[in-house]
Design a protein around this nucleic acid. Structure first.
Lengths: 154, 154
DNA sequence: TCACCTCTCTACTGGTTCGGTAGGCAATAC
DNA sequence: GTATTGCCTACCGAACCAGTAGAGAGGTGA
């Protein structure tokens, strides 16, 4: 259950675009975003292109060009961004959780994967880019982070 | 956010061992487990060896040998099995969620990853191998699967 | 003691993915 | 027309993944 560099970079870049959107400054240049978040520039261009193809981002070329969000930051969830660059949020050996076949004592595993995906969604589909910019997460998510136990790795 | 073949196989094999434990039949041979779950035998031996090294499984060699759970099935969670074969449940670009540094508008991402990990844990640390065998998941997890929306992929 | 069975361990391999780079092309502004 | 910026495809090395191989060690039974 790894979060790839690609997904992480995409979210960081998107958060920069969200801030620019909220603050009303114009298009952000790739150079600026990459520098602000410490992302290799060419790699990030690649990633932002994916976001553009999925309709999350708009662009303009030329001297006064750059990138900006296609819709308000509050309408883009983190799940939207991740799906744009990585495909489905959760899958089992390359298949959708509901597509995997289990036999005998393992039968309930399918439902477990469904539950896993659902729990991922409750976080990633409720947090929006606007939440990142504002610095306040939705109550459900905030609640998960309150438990000190959540901050230790096992 | 992929579930690897290794983790999937580990859980399936473990569920077979759990059933044998609950039913009180003796050690299970690798051959039997592999056949029952359709797992390549040598690959599965490899995986079960990991489970053994982590103290989840005991073994005996020879004609009347086989594999069995080291502790009752109700005391082994799915998270235990996954961690034994894959390491940490969730990490961001190879690091623990709480170790990743974010700057500016991306700062809240760390808390998001913490929440993601916490939500994974609420599923994988509550379901035990005994639950799989009995065919009844804990209420919290069962609840997640009840929502029809959880069964569609986006 | 011998034969046979089953797990143990290390190494290997072929293929895919991942993170990142390169470079030419297309559009925009001045 | 020229400088600037994004667009797009291709490429590359390294790591990882799924699976295989095979010799060896510990058991059992005769």
């Amino acid at each position: 259950m790894q979060v790839s560099a690609r997904a992480d970079y995409a979210l960081r870049a998107a958060s920069e675009l969200a801030r620019a959107k909220v603050e009303g400054t114009g298009p952000l240049k790739g150079e600026r975003i990459a520098a602000a978040q410490g992302i290799p520039k060419k790699f990030m261009e690649n990633i932002l292109l994916d976001l553009k193809h999925h309709g999350l981002v708009r662009t303009q070329r030329g001297a006064s060009g750059g990138y900006w969000l296609a819709v308000p930051a509050a309408e883009i969830t983190l799940a939207d961004v991740i799906r744009a660059v990585e495909g489905p949020l959760a899958n089992v050996r390359g298949e959708w959780p509901e597509a995997v076949e289990y036999t005998g004592s393992a039968e309930k595993l399918r439902e477990v994967w469904i539950a896993v995906r659902a729990s991922l969604r409750t976080v990633l589909e409720t947090v929006t880019l606007a939440d990142l910019v504002e610095g306040s997460l939705p109550p459900v998510v905030e609640g998960l982070t309150r438990n000190p136990e959540a901050w230790v790795h096992h």
